[in-house]
């Protein structure tokens, strides 16, 4: 029973391994690219949404920013509020009605759909990330004369990025799995290989097992890498005292010499090397 399963999996992999791997490759490329583009869209939307408007600003700036906010709002609500599988169908089959020709590249459609979908979620995450930063940081930057753009670039966004990192990871992992719905327009991702292979030779469970292990490996590796990046972004836990105060400098920075080396005070060899010249000098002096 168990051995039969293993035998089936081995046979499947032997026969279709390359096709599975190709599916994994497509899934990974789509998920990584779409997450990257989605983040870019999200950052642009989040930044545009948080530009402060005051009553003293001129009417054009206020109207423009108002319009931008409405557009972003609608974009977020529409793409967050409908299933991605439907969005794919909607765009792939809808475009010919308006432009008279079918999309030639399924890749392009898939990339567009997953990117703008991710962008809609990221827009809110970025906005939240920016709002989560203590207003004191903005005041500190304003007080030394930074404008809004500089404050964002040098003070707020670097801190917001750290807070958003888990969300970016979330979106990436969701994308690894959810790109599977692109099979509806014929994208050959990892999951579509399962449909193809199992449909050809009726080994549903062994193929599903391969898929499970495959997806889990992809997401676990991603989780691991994201944790590592988060740690890097958090910065070092300690810092080095700079020179200036010699006493402060010396504290705690003394490295013990290697055990048994001529410089180890506990070693019998201690001092032999160090005082060699001195002793010889003494002897010389005694001889004279």
């Amino acid at each position: 029973m168990f051995s039969q399963l293993i035998a089936d999996v081995v046979t499947l992999w032997g026969k279709y391994g390359k096709i599975y791997l190709n599916g994994i490759k497509n899934t990974l490329i789509l998920a990584i690219t779409a997450t990257a583009i989605g983040c870019l869209i999200g950052f642009i939307c989040g930044i545009l949404q948080t530009i402060p408007v005051s009553k003293t600003d001129n009417i054009f700036k206020r109207l423009f920013l108002g319009l931008v906010r409405v557009i972003i709002r609608v974009y977020v609500e529409v793409f967050r509020g409908t299933p991605m599988i439907l969005q794919a169908v909607f765009i792939y089959y809808g475009v010919p009605y308006f432009f008279g020709h079918v999309f030639k590249s399924i890749w392009a459609v898939s990339l567009i759909v997953v990117s703008i979908n991710t962008g809609a979620y990221m827009a809110e995450s970025v906005r939240g990330g920016i709002l989560s930063i203590d207003p004191g940081q903005t005041e500190g930057a304003k007080a030394i004369g930074m404008n809004h753009f500089q404050t964002m670039l040098y003070v707020i966004l670097p801190q917001a990025l750290r807070n958003i990192m888990p969300q970016i990871g979330n979106n990436y992992i969701i994308n690894v799995k959810d790109t599977s719905v692109m099979f509806i327009i014929g994208f050959s991702d990892f999951f579509s290989i399962h449909k193809m292979v199992s449909g050809a030779i009726y080994k549903y469970f062994p193929s599903a097992l391969i898929e499970m292990i495959g997806y889990l490996t992809l997401t676990l590796v991603a989780s691991f890498l994201l944790r590592w990046v988060e740690k890097k972004l958090a910065g070092s836990d300690s810092y080095e005292l700079a020179a200036g105060d010699q006493l402060v400098m010396a504290a705690g920075t003394y490295n013990s010499p290697a055990k048994g080396s001529p410089f180890d005070e506990q070693s019998k060899e201690f001092g032999k090397e160090l005082y060699k010249g001195v002793d010889e000098g003494k002897e010389d002096g005694a001889n004279e």
Binding site: D134, G136, Q137, E139, G140, A141, K142, A143, I144, G145, Y154, V155, Q159
Partner: peptide, 15 residues
Amino acid sequence: RAKVGMVFQSFNLFN
């Protein structure tokens, strides 16, 4: 603002 420095109660150093 660049010519008028400000020191806050809550420091507001860039974290």
